[in-house]
Amino acid sequence: MEWFNVGRIVNTHGIHGEVRVLSTTDFEEERFAVGNKLAAFKKGDKKPTWITITSMRRHKNFILLMFEGMNNINLVEPFKEGMLKITKDQMTDDLLEENEYFFHEIIGCTVISEEGETIGIVHDILQTGANDVWVVKDSKKEYYIPYIEEIVKDIDVENKKIVIHVMEGLL
């Protein structure tokens, strides 16, 4: 089964079973909604525990969650430093706007110039606030490609291929 991280449980919060989560998703309201089911992986475990969210609130830079049937610190303590994940089936395209993609759809794509020259493969995505920047690597170099209309001309996630316009100074 393919898993996607949506948050990391960094600590417990209080004695009533709340956990402090550092979000790794752009869709916090949907992923951490009351009633939503997530897979909780304890640190080092390969097998998840399915949990249902019963409470969600923000506190500073964290999201505080409570899980069904886990209403004290002793029950949630084992999840400390664990990961919250979803399956590919839980990812829905209706969360995305036009010309938006999930990171896993972009990472691994081969980047090609309009002239047909292979630039490299997308290895990472940096979120800068203004626009995402793709980290593209070939065997020798690393390039930073901004995800903007002037540069990215075509994205084919089915064939894992991206065509870009190479502006002067880009590479």
Rank of each mutant, 00 (worst) to 15 (best):
K46L: 11
E142Q: 13
A130Q: 09
V122T: 07
G35Q: 07
Q90L: 05
G35N: 07
V21N: 03
E2S: 05
T87Q: 03
T25Y: 12
K85I: 03
V6W: 02
E18L: 10
S55C: 01
P48I: 04
G116Q: 10
K137S: 15
T92E: 14
I121Y: 06
R58N: 10
F62L: 09
K37R: 12
S23V: 10
D156M: 07
W50Q: 08
I151E: 08
F4N: 11
G129T: 11
V122N: 05
I51V: 15
R20W: 11
E77H: 11
K137T: 14
F103D: 08
H13D: 14
R58W: 06
G69R: 10
E100P: 02
I121G: 01
W3G: 02
N71V: 06
T25D: 11
I15Q: 14
K47M: 12
F79W: 12
N11T: 10
E97M: 11
F67G: 01
G129Q: 09
N71C: 04
E97S: 14
K46P: 00
H104L: 01
L126V: 09
C109E: 07
E114M: 12
A33Q: 14
E100D: 02
V152Y: 06
H165E: 14
V157T: 15
A130Y: 09
V111T: 05
I125A: 10
K46G: 13
K141S: 15
A39T: 06
T25E: 10
H59K: 13
K60Q: 14
I164F: 10
M56C: 11
G108V: 00
L75I: 11
T52R: 08
I86T: 07
D154I: 03
E29C: 00
G129L: 11
T118R: 12
M66R: 14
D138N: 15
S139M: 08
